[in-house]
Amino acid sequence: MQQRTPIEEQIDLPFVESLRISFQSLKIRFGRSIITTAGITLGIAFLVSVWTNNEIGVALQESGRQTTINTFEETTEQGISTKDIWLIVMSLIVCVVGIANSMLMAVTERFREIGTMKCLGALDGFVVRLFLLESGFQGFSGALIGALIGTLGAVLLGLKDYGLDLFFYFPLLPAQPENGPMQLGVIIVILLGCILGMILAVIGSSFPAWRAAKLPPAEAMRTEV
């Protein structure tokens, strides 16, 4: 008479189901998603604009058309001024901190949701996968928009500095000048910006999501933000 059926093992959900849930969540939380994504966009736009600006500067310097830029600045052997390096490093830091912060906030305010999902039978891995998908998508789209905005900014700045010469010597593709540093080219910079934005967003969200998923649901639901 006694019901003593052993407790079975929880099943893994098909990937499509995770994809569907994460996109649904992004869609309904659209306003909040946009703000988080904007954080990524800004970080990457800043980084890519500085970087592209630098690429343009170096390209025109190589072409011999460079006019006033860097005249009064200390220039390293590779032709990049210390100011440029400083700017790139700074923008990289701003980008890393900004993205990590917005993802961290976005996940922390959802601890309760994570706890609830676990109450309903979600596996830890499923919760982490949801956040990975959401943040990966946000990271990529935010970074792509940011990279394009950044490039546009750098081009406008370049037009101001170099006029239409910019387009003759535009460093679109990677190049290896005879006696200069390897130039990545704007396409590679945009690509790197996208990858960086996506990786930072994924790390920034999956780490707290993983921590929350590991907590017993009661504790996750108690967390106040």
Binding site: E8, E9, T116, L120
Partner: peptide, 26 residues
């Protein structure tokens, strides 16, 4: 195991909370 606990929460128990704990996005 973790998987058994997840299955237990999923199949054996239904939870009702004071603050409802519904997912706001669904």
């Amino acid at each position: 195991s973790q998987r058994q606990i997840a299955a237990f929460r999923c199949h054996r128990v239904g939870y009702i909370f004071q603050s409802y704990n519904l997912l706001h996005v669904r």
